[in-house]
Design a protein around this nucleic acid. Structure first.
Lengths: 345, 345
DNA sequence: CTGTTAGCGCTTTCAA
DNA sequence: TTGAAAGCGCTAACAG
């Protein structure tokens, strides 16, 4: 790696001062520099293969032009998921559009305390997007109160830290309404996870809301708790089918869990969607390949990443953020598992 | 965000010089500092909530302690894939183990020239891992020749730039040997992509090698070209099955393509594995869920990311790199599509 | 053992 | 229109 050219060398070659070089290269407005000088500087910069040193610039501007994306979930889970990569893609897009860079930090599960705060404290980044925030994160709250630029991916109940999240209530409503529209009146639900998870509680709320809007009464006996896994879906569906009066449709708030539910239904000799309609949530890649292809709710992963990064950069730049609490809507993807399209293809 | 404390302030509070502060906080060896002084410094640092400024440190050490991961493939494809996230996970692990950070840069497809070189030129990072390198990348070669720290993810034929790659030849051998071991002698192959792709050519070579090692002659009429997609698998398998003497087993060098091949076989009324054995490659998540579950070759994605980052950091640290050309072996995952386990579970 | 001092490469007032 | 000069916060060589 040959010696790097500095601005001083460019100045010397061009026969001007470093100041002028800086003005020309940064296109500083208000400084009217003669076309001839400007050209000399540009030529010299090219001849010397000059590139401004980002570190030196950071030093003097006090800005890193970098945001951190901190993944606090279990990494194995996070990276196996299809959701996070899409979010990453969205963030990367937003970030580069603003001339920023993206620092990716994965917190190992062993790490309890907010190690990621070092990113901000040591000025590696100007702000962070935090994926998988936890309610018990004291450092997080303190950092926020001290004015750190933080955007959470997903909300924490009762927290005033800016966030970007999926509208889980709305998505669940969408799914339930679809089932209602198909004529079902006895609709069961299997949650994606225990209700301590906000997303889980919200999806249940959306289901309930849709039911009540349709004039039906919410019947807790038709609800079972899933637990992220296919197995939990098998079990839950099994229980639902054992009811004296079994539901004619089931909304499962997670595709993975729905896969298990589908298995259980088939095991019970039921044809989906003819004998039982099933609607999922998440639109995992597998959803379109299973038989029957799963009708489900698609999450705006890319948009979520984009929005979070965009808002963070706004905060960093002290731009107005009209609403620091972003909720993105979901789409219903209609396939074959609810009977809306009985003749596939 | 309150004012940041500087080392000078810590020094003042502790009643020592900045040098001493630096020595204590960095645990510099050889400097024997009195326990009492050390404690005073530490206390002062804590009281002031002092955090060293990474930028200033970068400035003076000349090291960013940061590596860039540049994704040059189409982002949509890259992030839809399950492979890249795993690689990312591996890199992140290696990077943080060495006290480095990871800068993620996604090159939009519109961008022809090596924009990513700015990362190195402007000293945002100490080196980069380049995913999806291209043979026509002149900037890449030049940067390498000028001594830039670069590791490619995947190799370029005839290129001497360090790389980490999957042993595709070995993996294909593994798959073919498995089929041979099951007694098949007429084994077809469908490639994952056109042979211009190194990985594709290598997998074909591995297939051929295994055949010849077993004393069989390589028969080109049993080979068809896939093209990344399920559709190409359908077509290729269709042709193979139309042969006067059809193969009894087919090695498909891509799970996605194999999914299509499976469909074609079922369409032709063949039962897999009873009537036809099919072996895939990649171990995509879907592979274990299809029916029959796909026997396939698993790629060491995590290890690849880890190895690439590890090597790059070694290069940056001027450590010895025993072998700058890393080839990681694959594993055969035996499921049900080849008949090795006719009675699943 | 501890302090003095000289930069790292750049931006940016302030003068000329 | 251009130049001189003051730092940004830190590390590390060199003196005491």
């Amino acid at each position: 790696m040959s010696k790097r050219a500095t601005a001083a060398e460019v100045a010397e070659l061009a026969g001007v001062s470093r100041t002028t070089v800086s003005f020309v290269l940064n296109n500083v407005v208000g400084m009217r520099i003669s076309e001839e000088t400007r050209q000399r500087v540009l030529d010299a910069a090219i001849k010397l293969d000059y590139h401004p040193d980002a570190t030196a610039r950071r030093m003097v501007t006090g800005q890193t032009k970098m945001i951190g994306f901190v993944i606090r979930q279990s990494p194995d889970q996070a990276f196996a998921d299809h959701f996070l990569p899409q979010v990453l893609h969205g963030m990367s897009k937003a970030v580069s559009a603003q001339g920023f860079h993206l620092l990716l930090e994965v917190i190992p599960p062993e790490n309890h305390t907010g190690v990621y705060m070092k990113l901000i404290n040591e000025r590696h980044v100007d702000g962070i997007v935090l994926s998988g925030p936890r309610s018990d994160d004291i450092e997080l709250r303190r950092a926020y109160e001290e004015g750190a630029n933080i955007v959470m991916l997903g909300q924490l109940p009762g927290e005033k830290i800016p966030f970007a999240d999926v509208n889980n209530v709305g998505g669940a409503q969408l799914a339930t309404q679809h089932l209602l529209g198909l004529g079902h009146t006895r609709i069961g639900m299997i949650t994606n996870a225990p209700l301590a998870y906000t997303a889980s509680a919200d999806r249940l709320a959306g289901y309930r809301l849709a039911l009540e809007e349709a004039g039906l009464i919410y019947d807790e006996s038709l609800v079972r708790l899933g637990n992220f896994t296919m197995e939990s879906g098998v079990k839950a569906m099994h229980e639902l089918l054992a009811l004296k009066e079994r539901p004619s449709a089931v909304f499962v708030a997670s595709d993975t869990v729905a896969l298990g539910a589908l298995q259980a239904a088939q095991l019970a000799g039921l044809k989906v969607p003819q004998d039982l309609a099933v609607c999922g949530f998440d639109d995992i890649p597998l959803a379109q390949y299973v038989d029957p292809a799963l009708t489900t709710v698609q999450l705006p992963a890319f948009g979520l990443g984009w929005a979070a990064a965009e808002m963070l950069i706004r905060m960093i730049s002290k731009d107005k953020v009209k609403n620091p609490y972003i909720m993105l809507n979901t789409d219903l993807i209609i396939r074959n598992s609810c009977g809306a399209r009985l003749a596939p293809k």
